[in-house]
Write a protein that binds this DNA or RNA. Structure first.
Lengths: 340, 340
DNA sequence: CTGTTAGCGCGTTCAT
DNA sequence: ATGAACGCGCTAACAG
């Protein structure tokens, strides 16, 4: 390399001088001169070369289901900030929770020798994840748990969030509460559904299978379809706990379709507190998840696994119920849905 | 490599067989056997190794100001889809339109030998960009033009968008129209301001410097501050054209602060048509920009530059005015702001 | 403290 | 059509 020639030393010395970890092993003045020359020549280490030698690319792969869900950009931002401190960069890819696309992306990332994976895709059974684990690739999952629990995870306290939401609705006087659950093959979908049923039990409310419907995806359209389904079943309800905010928006759309005022006749609670949730009409009551921190902690955990081979662990982050305009006391008996 | 041993051939042959471009130069049966063995062994080419040899990492760097602005995830998605077809991946980084952070990110990406850059950061003067260009790195800028016009760009037809917005307001009867412009050091800020003034001239409306205020950033908070500023100046207006949707939301916040109903007393128009714009309260009238296509075309252009050294070019995408609830006829004289 | 050497995995060139 | 040898830029290990 020309930095070596310019500074009149050998490339090995340059390498040592430029690497903070090995700099101590070279004469201070020489090191200073080398650094100066490198700066003047605008030299940047070639990570491909280093990767070949060290088997570390200082790059990690991040699998994100859908950047258009405002939940994820904030997670990504947390990830970026944590990684940058360690000189790492993330290769970010959208998977759509599509198994095939996910496999393609993992292959592409593996081929780029990423040092580890951050996986926010929601699917629970995950053959791809399984393979990664078997090959000893460091993996941290975000906002989900994995079926086998053999990977580190950073999650929000979903049960607490649902419990808070239910307590709020019950305090308002609701008794017939429906649940538009997230997809059954996702960790969050399952956990929140269980928490919903547990809350029903806790408050002595009856479990009614007609008031629970599973969405096929975490999207607005799915939320709308589910709510129509709920209507078709003809069982009255005065509140809906949605699996996440996008589903909640879909629920509200379906209510509007049927000219059912929210929150006057039906209350709706979301989950995540995505950006803009408070600007929606009506402003969404929802459970806030510390998304930035979720990403940041996830990245920290992954770096730990890469460098210190730390044992696997799960970090649970606290949530907060944000009470806004989409919840209110139920209508008086006789004025509600289906003559309730 | 073990694939070679397993298949009983030399590594060179394996390399040729696995690379679609050179596969023709190897016996078809042998190639098939090698591919089969590689698949069975779960072999993936090491891009770092290839990069070292070919000086191509099949990775590009994408500089995004702020993923939390819903405009960008959709652009990113377009980028990803285009790149994937070519076996490319994007290293995505947020810059906050912060010059220092931008430089750090560019250095990190350069050090990873990215084959080119996609730059959606908005700042117009851009020393970092200048250096990239001088070093012959392929660059495509998105949703902005560059000061020196020496780089390819994909932009929306901003002048047309502003013209449509103004035509809409004038048709409604507005005469005193304010502009909360984007930052003066951004391409979009300048272009939209010019288009605003051109429209004023076209309709024989007076240019009033008191009705134009420049935001310091494309954020909701900046939009609110600017609108307060507008109020303090005491000049009446019945409509605001905002530099983008986030600014428009800020304008609406400021109106709410002052209990000025939108659109009854002041109409507001945004720009970009971000996700959820139609769900805001009031639903935002805004100019839709084909964001996905913007990203996709940008990536295509960049790949062209990388592989075919194409000359620089600018692609302009058409826009559409989305008329929703935030615009209406101006209040009758005597009922408006400041006794207008 | 610094120079030397080797090899990471790949593609290319030359030889066969 | 295939094998052998080399070098891309870097760092680890060893020698001095």
């Amino acid at each position: 390399m020309d930095v070596a020639r310019e500074a009149g030393v050998h490339v090995g010395t340059v390498s040592r001088a430029l690497n903070p970890a090995t700099r101590s092993r070279v004469n201070a003045e020489t090191a200073a001169r080398i650094i100066e020359v490198a700066r003047r020549l605008g030299y940047e280490v070639n990570i491909a070369g280093r990767a070949l030698r060290t088997q570390r690319t200082q790059t990690i792969g991040a699998l994100i289901p859908d950047l258009a869900n405002p939940l994820f950009p904030r997670i990504v931002r947390g990830v970026e900030d944590s990684l940058e401190k360690a000189g790492y960069t993330a290769l970010i890819t959208s998977t759509d929770n599509n198994a095939q696309r996910e496999r393609r992306m993992i292959a592409a990332l593996l081929s780029r020798q990423v040092d580890g994976f951050l996986i926010a895709s929601a699917r629970l059974e995950d053959q791809a994840l399984e393979e990664l684990l078997q090959n000893g690739v460091p993996v941290v999952v975000l906002n989900r748990t994995s079926a086998n629990a053999r990977t580190s995870a950073v999650i929000a306290d979903d049960p607490q969030g649902i419990a808070d939401a239910m307590a709020h609705l019950v305090a308002l006087g609701h008794e017939r509460i429906a649940h538009v659950a997230g997809p059954g093959d996702t960790s969050t979908g399952q956990v929140r559904l269980q928490a919903f049923e547990a809350a029903l039990d806790r408050y002595g409310l009856q479990r009614r299978s007609e008031l629970v419907v599973c969405a096929e995806a975490y999207t607005i359209a799915a939320g709308t379809r589910c709510t129509r389904d709920l209507f078709n079943r003809g069982k009255p309800f005065t509140a809906v706990v949605a699996g996440n905010d996008l589903l909640a928006l879909g629920v509200i759309d379906a209510l509007k379709e049927n000219r059912i005022p929210c929150p006057e006749r039906v209350s709706v609670v979301g989950f995540n507190d995505i950006d803009f949730a408070e600007r929606m009409s009506p402003a969404l009551t929802t459970v806030r998840v510390p998304t930035y921190e979720l990403g940041a902690r996830g990245a920290d955990l992954l770096l730990d696994m890469i460098y210190r081979e730390r044992e696997i662990s799960t970090v649970t982050l606290p949530v907060t119920l944000m009470i806004r305009e989409s919840t209110a006391p139920p209508p008086l008996p006789g004025t509600g849905l289906f003559g309730l």
